Amino acid sequence: MTVLVTGASGTLGSAVVPRLQKQGYAVRPMTRSARTGWVTADLRTGDGLEEAVRGVAVIVHLASSPGRPQQTDVEGTRRLVAAARTAGVEHFLYVSINGIDRVPYRYYQAKLDTEAVVKASGIPCTILRAAQFHDFAEMLLSGLSRLGPVLIDGKWQLQTVAIEDVADRIAELIARPATGETTEYAGPQVLTFEELARSWLAAKGSKRPVWQVRLPGRMARAIRDGAQTTAAIPAGTRTWRDYLAAKY
């Protein structure tokens, strides 16, 4: 079975491609820039999409552009599903983000619009809403500590997940017939941003202070209220502390 993976060079794609190859799939990674052994196509223009989807049974759609979500995510997905429909693709799996229907944020609205494009495509589909990755939480903490202290809204509730767990979940879902359902997937623990920050600093052996602020606005309030957490099962198995222990 041939599986096309968009966004194959990204953070999640770099884990999904070898995971599916190990499973025995003929994986066709897609990129906008020419790369040996990969198919070249551009969601923003549609160039190369017809060739990219030819002979493909399953599409795992990971490509996204937070800076240009309308062009890449929404319109790009519209071009991709049109080509996939013509090619007779049997299963279209789209990876979205957990809690996007509960957190008011422009990029999240674009992801919701993209989900709607997939659902209306007529192609059997699965939508997997994954929580923020452990790696993303660390990147965010690093950015928030550039000036010395770690400046955070400590009451934010996050349920970060391991990239490897999401790759495993994708492999499980494409091995089954498409259900048309939207499912959430997150890590095994809900932690406050303060807990994330302090355990991160401890793992690094850092004595930077943690300064807490209560961020204003509906988005910040929704995250404090747990809008990006979920009770959905199954959940990932690798905890935030597992991630830190493996890295530090």
Score class of each variant (00 low, 15 high):
residue 207 K to I: 14
residue 110 A to P: 06
residue 243 Y to I: 03
residue 121 S to Y: 02
residue 120 A to P: 12
residue 43 L to S: 04
residue 40 T to V: 11
residue 59 I to L: 08
residue 107 Y to Q: 04
residue 124 P to G: 09
residue 67 G to I: 02
residue 71 Q to S: 13
residue 124 P to F: 07
residue 24 G to C: 09
residue 33 S to Y: 02
residue 43 L to F: 02
residue 161 V to Y: 07
residue 47 D to L: 07
residue 179 T to D: 13
residue 4 L to E: 08
residue 23 Q to E: 15
residue 142 S to C: 15
residue 202 A to Y: 03
residue 222 A to F: 00
residue 126 T to M: 13
residue 129 R to D: 08
residue 133 F to V: 10
residue 107 Y to P: 06
residue 23 Q to I: 15
residue 36 T to R: 08
residue 91 H to F: 10
residue 208 R to I: 09
residue 6 T to H: 01
residue 199 S to K: 00
residue 57 A to R: 15
residue 172 E to Q: 14
residue 80 L to Q: 00
residue 2 T to W: 11
residue 185 Y to H: 10
residue 155 K to S: 14
residue 202 A to H: 04
residue 130 A to N: 04
residue 136 F to E: 13
residue 62 L to I: 09
residue 44 R to A: 15
residue 225 D to M: 09
residue 220 A to N: 04
residue 104 P to M: 09
residue 50 E to M: 11
residue 224 R to C: 06
residue 35 R to F: 05
residue 190 V to E: 10
residue 37 G to D: 03
residue 80 L to P: 01
residue 91 H to W: 11
residue 193 F to R: 06
residue 71 Q to G: 07
residue 140 L to P: 03
residue 178 A to D: 09
residue 104 P to Q: 07
residue 73 D to L: 03
residue 81 V to K: 00
residue 232 A to N: 13
residue 29 P to W: 01
residue 38 W to T: 05
